[in-house]
Amino acid sequence: MKSKCIAVRSVTYAQKAKSVLSQNGLSCSIIRRPQGTLTGCGWCIALHSDQVKKATELLRNNGVKLSGEIYDLP
């Protein structure tokens, strides 16, 4: 299964994102932002790559601030 992660602006937004997505039937988990980013530590929401588009829309509609980066997970 291919997975991706959506970067969010803070751990609070990560938890809010998980709560919003779970309420909408999307399975996800909170992970640390993958290595190699310029600004250092951060938080992401990991989920199945097929669900990224729907998740992004849900998060934006529910006031979750995204960092604008989406990473592939191994």
Binding site: S10, V11, G40, C41, K65
Partner: peptide
Amino acid sequence: GTGTDSLLWSQPLEFPEG
């Protein structure tokens, strides 16, 4: 410290952690 953007020298003013 905010737990985010640790390599930045300036404060990230994100709510609420900032």
